[in-house]
Amino acid sequence: MPAPNAAEHPVLETHGLTISFGGHVAVDGVSCAFHSGTLTAIVGPNGAGKTTYFNLISGQLRPTAGRVSLFGEDITMLPAPQRTRRGMGRAFQLTNLFPQLTVLENVRLAVQSHARMGLNLFSVWSGHVELIERAGHYLERTALADRRDMLASALPHGDQRKLEVAILLALEPDIFMFDEPTAGMSVDEVPVILELIHGIKQQQDKTVLLVEHKMDVVRSLADRIIVLHQGELVADGNPAEVIASPIVQQAYLGVAVEAA
């Protein structure tokens, strides 16, 4: 099924987005629009530039050429924190937490950021009970509630991945960017995350971008698939078509499709 409201203004758009490191062009002129109520999976072989494309969108990297626009506004030069404040949320591929803070505090910081309370200097943090309760709520949704007082660094890998997702949820973004959210998770942990992503995608005002290797995951969640190869966008369409297309079958997903 193509994006249902493709005719409307896209929430997020990249125009000829390009970045090169030295001589190597990691992302090469990618133009793509993302609409709300749609989950777009971004697939491609390792080194195709998927994570780099994410970094350009969420502001960790500046492009060499091209533009990023959010809700029709050019945000190409905006640093990452401002993009987050405008409704972009990102979970990282390599777990990226506050290791020496508790699980609850990791999430509470995200809730606090969303509540724009960071520059509150003279109140005691623990007095803001509503922030703590909201953080607890997101821990429950990610099945981490019983680990709230552990240090993030002490969590097993699968739980760290879930915490990464809990932080993203706590930002309450309009655009959710998941970078291989289930990588390294045990089989029984994966459904929790998939169900969460599925729940987000049901909300018509949310936009989801998902980088994922597992084709079964992509097939069950995606409304649309784009394929990156050597930094270029080589296919874009509904899941059945893209997965079936010869270019994807042969060059990029051959192994994965067989495995699935």
Binding site: A80, P81, R85, N96, L97, L101, G118, I167
Partner: peptide, 12 residues
């Protein structure tokens, strides 16, 4: 702890 992540969740 992690200034990169602090930026990513919206703190400059």
């Amino acid at each position: 702890e992690n200034d990169f992540r602090a930026e990513a969740i919206g703190y400059r």
